[in-house]
Nucleic acid binder design. Structure first.
Length: 1155
RNA sequence: GCCGGGGUGCUGAAAUUGGUAGACAGAAGAGACUUAAAAUCUCUGGAUCGCAAGAUCGUGUGGGUUCGACCCCCACCCCCGGCACCA
């Protein structure tokens, strides 16, 4: 073949490869495995543009290289085809989504196949295939079984255009990620997945993923949003003392009678507050029986709507049973370290279990109890926690975790119990050190306590106003809440006050929408002196601002950075800003030795007044004599730094002042001060930029009046904690007045969609049995045919209208039941698909254990960065869950994650039908060939960068391939004769040039390692360099064939064609031999001794500047290199003395000369 | 605001991680071949000054460390990405 004609070559080989199944993946225990995965595409109606295949080409090159280096490679492809785009496309085009999806997939597959990708299509999967989503549903059932799937009625994000609920991850700010519509809050029943239970592990395990790009990990960290802080209870006091008081029923636990633990103490504390308490002694506490104990309570105690039942340990179980029996509303329920149902997974069997019936009607109790609280003691470890969480969810109870005085609340006094009983509001804060500065409290308008308080008529005096504010903020969209960010609004709750547990002072309570209901506890303590938001609110509502943190600035950089080991020397000092007598300018001082830019500062001498010190220092440093004090600039500011003069660490305590200068009277400044200080007059704005030390800046901002300080420091006005530093104080205050608590921004995953085209959620609702999972044998629950799959917008999916499908028998009681009609979100199927490729046709299991063990985890995963906080979080969550239940063997699914940089349109915009700037790969393949497209996309730039497409630049890739083609003809003796006249210089075709040989070894090494590290652009550059050398020096057949092999992953068609023509030539000589594909050949090896040239050129520098070049033998010693270097620049060395020589072997010689 | 990643010719970029900055390409200019064009081949190609040899400057800006800095340190500017009334 004379001319490179891609059209003749490419189709031919694609068919050939498919026929011979050269890309079939097999588990081969003798070979190392490599699982190379692309994020599978969503087969949209638009087809592919030129940007889509970039990642696929990269994994293709990578997988081919892996195969050639002796790996068993799994490189599969499939389709993520459930979800809104397919459904909307179907509605618009009036076809069934299934049909639309089938059509789109066919088109995608066709497009991908023309690029020559090496997928093992026998493992193709499709999330909408019932045999696939059977296992998606199976995973859901497992999640349900383990208490990780639950129904909820909390308000969620609703997209009015897509007409479905969305998860937090589906939002782009406050808009629907898909269509850009601003979402509303809508209360509705939906399924949720408890991803927050995995928050800690999802966060921590990121550190075990060194081969993930940092920005992806960072996105996930931000998204999970862990913060460490404390929960603190603020007791409430009511103005209306005539409001009815509660009474208490205390139930003791197992083996505790005569009545033990904290019960007698609690009884006393409550009675001391004038409250009525009943404490029955439960019979046979050493061998308790449920019916007997419940009977005793019912017979001897009075229970009414004002009763709060408190049950400790086993008493907690009795409390539930009592409430179930009396079946009347009560004021509240508190379970203190409740006994655990022995049937609950992981629970320990107790002797009394057989005398107890643990079936409890949680829903009924939830309705009867005005409030419920569950207390859990962290000292008991994590064993009980799943059950307590389950209880909390079922009862709608608040779960409070903390440290009891003694394990299992067995202390004689347990203040945590008393605090939780007295009406109080719990806040979450990361700044417990500022507790003494909490001068008011703010609740989110949606806070449940507010709703409860309004129901109690007469408790709050301004109910109407409160109700109006709540209604208003309900109506506000998220957008308004955010755009009105700066304007703080709120309403005070009249008739109730909170008590700051640190100061004992009463503080007002507000509701305000700057506090978010769903973060922390939905309530905050407001510390206006040390929080910008509280500061603004306090100014607007004229609330007291109490400073409790004296700022502390620690210098960590520069000459005066604190020395790590040295002790600190205290130094009382002043900072003095001086205003000009007539202009609006300030005295700026630069202390030269440490480049400290700010104001006058200095130490207070023994017995000196701070004001006098300031005036003295002003005089000494600047010479100005007549100064008057304007005011002190707030309280003390502390600074830690290293004193360059005294040579020790200094802990300075500054009193900051503002002075004015009365006139320009000036005295002589000493020489030393003059040398050290530089004085200028600067405007306010200039000062802002001038000051470069934190302590001075803190003082400076106070010029404009009272400032809020959000940093850390030293506690003041904080009782016994005064004088502590923030970090230490946080621990101390949390220990004494609160409980340590970790909070996440991550929300549970809203798992219901009110649309048609998704996996049906496999549960049945039964009036008698409640939620009943569909038995495993009945999976998959197939998506039924429906007349109209238009979204209903009513909060029900179109499935709800198919009575025949919906109405079924309850699998448990065989009574009438109805199917769940919500479907799963698009992200369900993609959360585990990588597992199915390992064993795509398994009917008995999601994946065979042996196959999973062989292939897992995914070694290299390539896809778009936009999935950082959605698919990649969900998949990690499901994977960890599957790991926990023993389905998979690794804790993480993807070992190495690489995100593809986008290919933008030539105009620099996003390539999209909307802009009309789409470049179709089909056109490129037709005109230039698949190999050219592949080469260019890999050569464009670094793989992870986004770069604009340029068909013009692509010519370079095509030219390179043509040069290789011609080089091949030159290297092939059977065709050389016809080529001698094409303008090349004389060749060394027969023996093979030595220069070419060396270059080839270098290239083999570089291309191999560059592919491994996804640096395809430099791999190609190296191959181009090789062809440049080969053209000049000549190339023989053997060299060319080795070169073809390293080019093969990039240009599979052309290399296969050339390879086959060479192989034919071989066959003629050696007789019949089986033809193998170049893609199943071994990667060529390189010889270390050939990696270096015999002579190298080294740079010759004089005083660090390159002044010449010298040629030396590669193995020349230092002396020889130096001699050669001296020779190269002999003229320049004339009359000069070489004082020093630095030789970097094989690189350079640097000669240091003096005159 | 907080966090992460970046900033190099006309353009895409490279630089063995402290050792000749600009490899490899694209666009451009000059030449060869051709009736001509395309293709191909050869040469030039950071800036300024100079006929030239050469000199000076040059990796966002300003300082520093070093024989030597795109690379390390300090301060700042700009671009991209994530989070953001998250207590």
């Amino acid at each position: 073949m004379r001319k490179y004609d891609h059209k003749k070559i490419e189709k031919k080989w694609q068919r050939e490869w498919q026929k011979k199944e050269i890309y079939r993946s097999k588990e081969n225990p003798r070979k190392p495995k490599s699982y190379v995965l692309d994020m599978f595409p969503y087969p949209s109606g638009e087809g592919l543009h030129v940007g889509h295949p970039k990642g696929y080409i990269a994994t293709d090159v990578y997988a081919r290289h892996k195969r050639m280096t002796g790996h068993s490679v799994l490189h599969p492809m499939g389709w993520d085809a459930f979800g809104l785009p397919a459904e909307n496309f179907a509605i618009q085009n009036k076809v069934h989504p299934r049909a639309a999806v089938a059509k789109n997939i066919a088109r995608f597959k066709e497009q991908l196949s023309t690029i020559g990708l090496d997928y093992d299509w026998s493992r193709e999967i499709n999330t909408t295939d019932p045999s696939y989503y059977k296992w998606t549903q199976w995973i859901f059932l497992k999640l349900l079984e383990k208490g990780l799937a639950y129904e909820s009625n909390e308000p969620i994000n609703w997209c009015p255009k897509c007409q479905t609920g969305l998860s937090n991850e589906d939002l782009d700010g406050n808009a629907c990620e898909r269509c850009g519509t601003i979402v509303e809050k809508r209360p509705m029943r939906q399924w949720m997945l408890r991803i927050t239970d995995y928050a800690e592990r999802l966060l921590n395990d990121l550190s075990h993923l060194p081969e993930w790009q940092e920005h992806i990990k960072e996105s996930q960290r931000n998204w999970i949003g862990r913060s460490e802080g404390a929960e603190i209870d603020f007791p409430l006091e009511f103005e209306n003392t005539t409001a009815p008081k509660p009474n208490y029923l205390l139930l003791h636990g197992y083996k505790e009678s005569p009545i033990g633990a904290f019960i007698p103490w609690l009884n006393g504390e409550l009675e001391r507050r004038g409250l009525k308490v009943q404490v029955p002694e439960l019979p046979n506490s050493w061998n308790p029986k449920e019916t007997e104990q419940v009977k005793k309570v019912l017979d001897t105690c009075t229970i009414d709507e004002r009763t709060i039942i408190v049950g400790h340990s086993l008493g907690g179980a009795i409390a539930l049973k009592v409430l179930e029996k009396i079946n009347r509303p009560i004021a509240g329920l508190m379970l203190v370290a409740s006994a655990v149902n022995a049937k609950f997974p992981g629970a320990v069997e107790r002797p009394y279990q057989k005398h107890f019936n643990w079936d409890v009607d949680y829903a009924r109790i939830r309705k009867l109890a005005g409030f419920s609280v569950i207390l859990s003691d962290l000292q008991e470890g994590t064993r009980r926690i799943p059950y307590l969480k389950f209880l909390a969810k079922e009862l709608g109870a608040r779960l409070v975790e903390g440290n009891a005085e003694e394990k299992h609340f067995m202390g004689k006094e347990e203040p945590m119990v008393l605090n939780a009983l007295l009406p109080s509001i719990t806040v979450f804060t990361t700044r417990a050190d500022t507790l003494f500065g909490a001068t008011y409290m703010v609740l989110a308008p949606e806070h449940p306590w507010v709703r409860l308080a309004i129901q109690q008529k007469g408790l709050l005096k301004n109910e109407d106003e409160i109700v109006r504010y709540i209604a208003l903020s309900d109506k506000k969209t998220e957008l308004e809440r955010i755009t009105e960010q700066k304007k703080k609004t709120g309403v005070r709750l009249e008739g109730v006050e909170a008590v700051n547990p640190a100061t004992g002072k009463k503080i007002p309570i507000f509701i305000a929408d700057y506090v978010l209901a769903h973060y922390g506890t939905g309530a905050i303590m407001a510390v206006p002196a040390h929080d910008e938001r509280d500061f603004e609110f306090a100014k607007k509502f004229k609330l007291p601002i109490v400073e409790v943190i004296e700022p502390l600035a620690v210098r960590t950089t520069g000459l005066d950075a604190v020395h790590a080991d040295g002790p600190f020397h205290d130094r009382p000092a002043i900072l003095a800003f001086v205003k000009h007598w007539s202009e609006d300018k300030y005295l700026a001082v630069r202390y030269k030795p440490t480049d400290t830019r700010g104001c006058v500062s200095g130490g207070i001498d023994e017995g000196e007044e701070p004001i006098a010190t300031a005036q003295r220092e002003i005089r000494e440093e600047t010479g100005y004599v007549h100064t008057s004090l304007v005011r002190k600039l707030g309280g003390t500011i502390h600074g830690k730094y290293y004193s360059v003069v005294r040579k020790w660490n200094t802990f300075a305590h500054y009193t900051p002042f503002l002075f004015t200068l009365d006139d320009d009277t000036c005295e002589q400044v000493s020489e030393k001060e003059k040398a050290d200080h530089e004085i200028t007059w600067l405007t306010k704005k200039e000062m802002d930029e001038f000051i470069n030390h934190e302590d001075m800046r803190i003082a400076w901002v106070r010029i404009n009046g009272r400032a809020c300080y959000e940093g850390e420091g030293i506690l003041a006005n904080s009782g016994e904690f005064s004088g502590m530093e923030s970090a230490e104080a946080r621990k101390a205050i949390t220990g004494k007045l609160g409980r340590a608590k970790v909070t996440y921004k991550l929300r549970d995953w809203v798992f219901s969609r009110q649309r048609y085209w998704g996996e049906p959620i496999p549960v049945i609702h039964c009036a008698k049995c409640g939620v009943v999972p569909v038995p495993e044998k009945d999976l998959p629950v197939k998506l039924p045919e429906v007349n109209s799959y238009q979204p209903t917008g009513t909060g029900h999916s179109p499935l709800a209208s198919i009575a025949k499908w919906v109405n079924v028998r309850c699998p448990k009681c065989k009574g009438p039941g109805t199917r769940e009609t919500n479907t799963m979100p698009q992200w369900a199927g993609s959360s585990w698909y990588y597992l199915r490729y390992m064993d795509p046709n398994n009917k008995k299991a999601l994946v065979d254990k042996k196959k999973e063990k062989y292939w897992a985890p995914v070694d290299t995963y390539v896809g778009g960065a936009e999935h950082a906080t959605r698919h990649l979080i969900y998949a990690r969550f499901w994977h960890k869950f599957l790991h926990d239940i023993g389905v998979v063997s690794t804790p993480e699914p993807f070992m190495r994650l690489i995100s593809v940089g986008l290919i933008q349109a030539p105009d620099g915009k996003k390539m999209s039908k909307r802009y009309g700037n789409v470049i179709n790969p089909d056109d490129i393949v037709k005109a230039y060939g698949a190999d050219t497209l592949r080469m260019y996309e890999m050569f464009m730039g670094p793989f992870t960068d986004s770069i604009a497409w340029s068909t013009e630049s692509m010519i370079g890739a095509r030219r390179f391939l043509e040069r290789v083609w011609r080089l091949g003809q030159r290297a092939n003796p059977s065709t050389t004769s016809s080529l001698r006249s094409d303008g090349y210089g004389a060749g060394n075709e027969e023996r093979g040039a030595e220069g070419t040989e060396r270059q080839l070894h270098k290239t083999i090494l570089k291309v191999g390692s560059d592919i491994e590290s996804f640096k395809f652009n430099t791999a190609i550059a190296a191959m181009m360099t090789f062809t440049n050398v080969a053209e000049k020096e000549g190339i023989n057949k053997d060299q060319f064939v080795r070169f073809l092999k390293i080019l093969a992953p990039f240009a599979p068609h052309m290399t296969e064609e050339l390879w086959s023509s060479f192989a034919k030539a071989t066959k003629d000589k050696r007789g019949a031999r089986k033809m193998r594909s170049i893609h199943t050949e071994k990667w060529p090896s390189y010889d270390v001794s050939k990696l270096k040239d015999e002579t190298v050129r080294i740079a010759v520098q004089i005083n660090g500047k390159t002044r010449g070049e010298a040629s030396v033998a590669a193995d020349a010693d230092k002396e020889a290199q130096e001699a050669a270097a001296r020779g190269a620049v002999a003229a320049r060395l004339d009359g000069k003395q070489v004082v020093r020589t630095i030789v970097v072997p094989g690189r350079l010689v640097n000669l240091i000369v003096s005159d």
